[in-house]
Amino acid sequence: MKLSRITLTIATAAALMATAACGNSGGDPLASTSSSSSGSAAAGGITVGSADFPESALLAEIYAGALEAKGVKVTKKLNIGAREAYIPALQDGSIDLIPEYTGVLRDYFKKGQTGTDADAVYTELKSSVPAALTVLDKSAAEDKDALVMKKSRADELGVKSIADLKGKSQDLTVGGPPEWKTRDTGIPGFKKIYGLEFKQFRPLDAGGPLTLQALKNGQIDAGDLFTTDPSIAENDLVALEDPKNMYAAQNVVPLITKSKSNPTVEGALNAVSAKLDTTTLAALLKEVVSDKKDPDAVAKEFLSKNGLG
């Protein structure tokens, strides 16, 4: 009796372990390996990461597909919620490659740089990237921040560019990512560059669903969306022009661990960048966001159409 109870205790612990680990039969359940490859990113293999918004996942799938087509072993760890998580993850080797944007990445590594056009930003970025990492060729595809308003509201106010908001902004609520509160890409920038002060700033997300919903439904008058976002056109929104280049260029660029980069990898990724432009990227993103297709399917389509995969 006594013994059987102890045995039962141990058996239960084991059973619970087994239940917990039931997903474990095929190796580590947390490594979402792609179909064509398995195991960890061993020598030569590349682990592709992405942020947790649709465009990032789509670009990561495109990179992954292009690499696989060149015989590179690929593991995917997509949808990492925060840049504060995936950049350290690159540095500690948890992932090796991630699609990024030149302007925002430059500012992440080194604040206070002033270039705004695509080449200047890219040059500054290259010199800001930590030694262990590197960026490959930038693509022509750009997805930058824009201050977006409802078209009806912009027309009513007679506003086409951010500069036109002068004298009107004090009655407007603006929404953007939380960092807008203190960054030059946000509230301080509007004041410094355009002399604008808003009635209220509402911390939402970086061009994400919260900002879109709040714009669509009028909880904010203006907000931060990204230029490739199909929701802008679909919801009768309009991106205000930025005549003073408050927003730096944001070209899509692969950020990769130096030790994992080799001519095959670079060749494959640079070929992708060469084929990507803003219109193409926006069209692909529309399939994911509006038509609710899966990023990997859309990526495959793009790759085969361009002879990359």
């Binding site: 509402r202 669903p209 919903q213 709040a214 439904n217 009028g218 909880q219």
Partner: peptide, 14 residues
């Protein structure tokens, strides 16, 4: 958020 934002006006939506 997805469901209620269209139904609520102003700050209450948040």
């Amino acid at each position: 958020v997805l469901w209620l934002f269209p139904k609520l006006a102003g700050d209450s939506a948040f």
